[in-house]
Simulated assay, not measured.
Amino acid sequence: MGTSQSSGGPGGGVPMVPSWTPDPPAGGSPESESGGGKAPDEPAAPAPEAPPRAPVPAPLAPPARFLGARRALGDYARSGDSRELRRGLGHYVRTGYGGSATATRRFGGTATTAGALGGALASVAAGQPAAPGSPLDPVLLAGRTAQEVMDAVVEVVRPVDGTQDAEAERASIRDALSELLTRFPDADLLNLDPDQRAFAIERFTAIDVFRRFELDLGKTIIEKAPSAATALARLREARDFIKQSVAASFRKLRGAGRTLTSGRIGQVVGDALKETFEIFEGYAE
């Protein structure tokens, strides 16, 4: 789970959303995803150009931003009480990241990368020709192992850029594709069906949320747990809880007609993140 990369988390006085973090894609409505009820051949009216908006400065983190989260997670690490885990997640979002809205902005890279992942998997499944020299060129991937295909997907979707976010997202992509192959043993990574691609996108999102949480606060759980084995068990429980929470948010959006359709993946993922962080923030009540 990468516990060796856990740290004390970012401190106070720094922007809660780093300058390199992309804004989450704007959310859409069920009508906009289905064409707004227009007949298939009816041309869409051109959308008016929106005036450019000045970027909203990210709020600065307060001193001891993770203090409440550390206290709750320390109790969780010692006792295994799931209520303390939920309370820790609540303080993590509410104070650590200034609430669900700012937390969603902080995970803008997750939504953007999820969209790129979905696009790459859909393109290769549709047999669309890759750019010359692309790691996803079917000719280059012929006869390659699943691990080599995963590596190619990672290089296309999230190239190295020197940020911690990039390294975390690259690892999250690999983990998501590994879980996909566990869930669908006969899946072909170069020809995934829509349900398999949706699973990969949802699982990437959940794993990336956990990975950031672990980088910020995993050290607290490791240090406060009574043993190394217990610490790993607590982190697995936290990972499972976050995965279940993110999955529930995606299910809620699907029930409202928000599906991971091509071109809107980043928007749906951003909305799922917002839904998840709103739930987490409520745990701090």
Rank of each mutant, 00 (worst) to 15 (best):
A44L: 06
D271N: 12
G96T: 10
N191K: 06
R71H: 03
A111R: 07
A142G: 00
E84R: 13
P159Y: 10
L60T: 09
E167T: 15
L192C: 09
E202M: 04
G257R: 11
S262M: 03
P10Y: 06
F241L: 11
T113W: 04
L67E: 14
F66Y: 12
D151V: 02
D193C: 01
Q128M: 00
Y97W: 14
E285R: 14
A187N: 05
V246F: 09
E169F: 13
A225H: 10
R236E: 15
L215M: 08
S7V: 05
S82P: 11
T113C: 12
P138C: 06
D195Q: 11
N191G: 07
G257N: 12
D208N: 15
Q267Y: 00
G36C: 13
A26N: 01
T220L: 03
T230R: 09
L260K: 01
G2V: 05
E223L: 13
V139R: 13
T163P: 09
P226K: 09
R258E: 13
A125G: 00
A50D: 02
P25D: 11
V156S: 02
L253Q: 13
A61Y: 02
E148Y: 01
T112H: 10
E31R: 04
G9R: 08
L140E: 10
T220K: 04
R70N: 10
S34D: 08
G9M: 06
G109F: 06
V154F: 09
G80Q: 12
Q164H: 11
